[in-house]
Computed example of a mutant assay.
Amino acid sequence: MRRPAAFGLSLCLLATLSVTVSAARAQGEAAPIPPACTAFDWSLMRELAWFSAPGLGEVASGDTVAADMPGAVLKLRPDAEVEFPVPPSKEPAPGTYGGILRFPALTTPGLYQVTLSEDAWIDVSQDGKTARPPTAFTVKRDCPAIRKSVRYQFGTTPILIEVSGAKRDAIKIAIAPAE
């Protein structure tokens, strides 16, 4: 069975997080994971590791991320300045931020999840014209590192992710196969 490129990277990042946490504990700097971060409807420990890793890459709105880069900090702009190819399915509040992120064509179709570090609205398209309906979502407001994760059924064409209604000008975002 061929695994997506993101799978190998996720194992590497989880191993890095494990070594980092082990080193911190050895130095008496244990950083406990808040209970809310383990109470999502599905595990987001992989995404928590990505979002906590040093050197998480930054991408500008409109960029395409590399297939082996499942997580990044997306730099946002005021929603009013973003030209969304697919109109947001929820009207952004005045004074909020948004952005567009593109992922290359997937090698393996299936169930994937898009995860955000902050409150924001997500619209996803694979044809650049219509939003795909999510199959499920999970939200926890008490987890300081992750706010929500939304699952979608994806084919093997490129993915357009639109983020809108964010309260800050940057947000951590990840896309990965559902576990």
Rank of each mutant, 00 (worst) to 15 (best):
A176C: 07
P88G: 07
A30I: 10
F84M: 08
K90G: 15
A178Q: 01
A5N: 08
R77W: 05
R141C: 14
A105D: 07
L48N: 05
L116D: 00
I171K: 00
P134E: 12
S43T: 15
A72P: 00
G99D: 03
I161F: 02
L74W: 01
E83K: 07
T64V: 11
A23E: 02
R25Y: 03
W50Y: 13
T138E: 09
V82S: 02
P134L: 05
A26N: 01
Y152K: 04
P177A: 05
G99S: 14
A145P: 06
K129A: 04
A30S: 10
T64S: 14
R151H: 10
Y152F: 11
G8Q: 10
K140P: 05
P35S: 15
K129H: 07
A31T: 12
E162Y: 13
R25M: 09
L13S: 03
F40R: 02
P92N: 12
F7I: 14
S52A: 10
R132Y: 05
S10A: 09
L9V: 06
A178G: 03
R77Q: 05
G99K: 06
R3N: 11
P158D: 06
A23G: 15
K172Q: 02
R77P: 00
T156K: 12
A80W: 10
A80Q: 13
R2I: 14
L44S: 10
T157G: 13
V114Y: 01
A136S: 07
G8K: 14
G155W: 13
S61Q: 15
G165H: 13
K129C: 04
R132P: 02
D63L: 11
L160R: 06
V150Y: 05
V163C: 14
K140S: 11
P85A: 04
P177M: 07
S164Y: 02
G62W: 03
A174L: 01
G99E: 01
T157E: 06
A93E: 07
A176H: 02
P109S: 02
P88Y: 10
F137P: 04
K172H: 03
L111E: 12
A105S: 11
P78A: 06
S22L: 09
E91N: 15
D169E: 02
G8R: 12
A136P: 06
T96N: 10
P87W: 03
T107D: 11
A166C: 02
A6W: 07
F40M: 01
A145L: 09
G95T: 09
W50F: 09
A6F: 07
L13M: 05
L14V: 00
M45I: 13
K90V: 12
K90C: 07
E83Y: 12
P4I: 12
P32H: 08
G165A: 09
